[in-house]
Design a protein around this nucleic acid. Structure first.
Lengths: 192, 192
DNA sequence: TCCACTAGACTGACCGGTCTACTCACAATC
DNA sequence: GATTGTGAGTAGACCGGTCAGTCTAGTGGA
């Protein structure tokens, strides 16, 4: 049996994705996990602290996905980048197409909570940075135009992906994700 | 002085964009407007009813933007579509780059409230539909490849826009919006 | 007179967070 | 090796505050 802390974070991943931050009550989390309140506040300073640690946990999974895809040297660099998004899409399917937690929490909280906004933006920065390295490799190998800007392109892919993930969440359907990938990747190879 | 109902909706536009749904208390709305609770519940059945009407109001503004841009026959069809997004960007600037209310409420509520999810998706459908008509015209005039699919392309533009709007909200910066427009519009003209 | 509307006190439920009591594995002591 | 002390973790009753929503009273124009 996993530790109390791990069980809370695990449930947090699912519940925060579904409910968002403000709609998720501590009591619901505790009821779902069968863990009493005293334990929760022993392991976490506050609800906000908890959510932050859930985000950390979420990012661990994201980085695993990046390791798996960008590190797959059997693929050409551009295919590795695309593979990351495809792995993400597969993860979304397992979650019932609820989209991306970063996009969800970012939208909900960035208007009010600067700490959260900064954390989520930092997460996007991390992801975008790793994709950018991969795209730079693609550029050097001639898969992208020589004058392409890998960092800009990585941010663009990520942002468009988040938009597609929102639409996918609304429709509970992966189609917007695939359409976005087809369009942006075929466009990226064609122009700077 | 505007009517009580109008003042509430007006404040709702601003406060829902900033706080989202769950973080916005009725009391805050009433304090900001100086309107007593009895009046609120005279004009609106519930908080959810209120938010729905704020969305309706938001969509009126969106349609005005669409009228202004897509109806501007001095521009070529493709430029009209782009103009709509530029007008939206200008509106975001006036709001302090808080992104799009549809994206915000969609992300926050679509995991829990099916009524809201359907309403927001319908809004996206309306917008996308009007852009698609414009893109169809662009296709007929040869601005887009003959085999381009205007409806798909319109959805794609809108989705990518929403992603860029989220990032713009996180950064309080319009750059992601402009980058997205440059990339997608130059790509759309080039390929199907 | 009538009714749309204003006005705000009030309600019960629920919120995040605190508090004290308790359990139990394990280390220190003789 | 039995006894005792210690602290991490469990357990849930409880707290003040806030929530959406209700209720009754009053107001003012038609």
């Amino acid at each position: 049996m996993a530790t109390t802390r791990e069980r809370l974070l695990e449930a947090g991943l699912r519940l925060l994705l579904e409910h968002g931050y403000n709609d998720l009550g501590i009591q619901v989390l505790l009821k779902e996990t069968g863990i009493p309140k005293g334990s929760f506040y022993h392991h976490f300073r506050s609800k906000e602290d908890f959510a932050m640690q859930v985000v950390d946990r979420y990012m661990e999974e994201v980085h695993q996905g990046l390791d798996l895809s960008l590190g797959d040297t059997r693929l050409a660099p551009l295919a590795r980048a695309r593979r990351f998004f495809e792995l993400s899409r597969d993860k979304y399917r397992r979650d019932g197409y609820m989209g991306c937690m970063l996009g969800g929490l970012g939208q909900e909280l960035s208007g009010v909570n600067a700490t959260f906004a900064a954390r989520i933006e930092a997460c996007f920065g991390e992801i975008s940075g790793r994709i950018a390295s991969c795209l730079e490799e693609a550029r050097q190998q001639g898969e992208l135009p020589q004058d392409a800007d890998p960092r800009e392109l990585a941010n663009l892919l990520l942002n468009c992906w988040e938009g597609a993930a929102l639409r996918s969440r609304l429709l509970r359907d992966p189609a917007p994700l695939d359409r976005m990938l087809d369009f942006t990747f075929s466009a990226a190879t064609r122009a700077s």
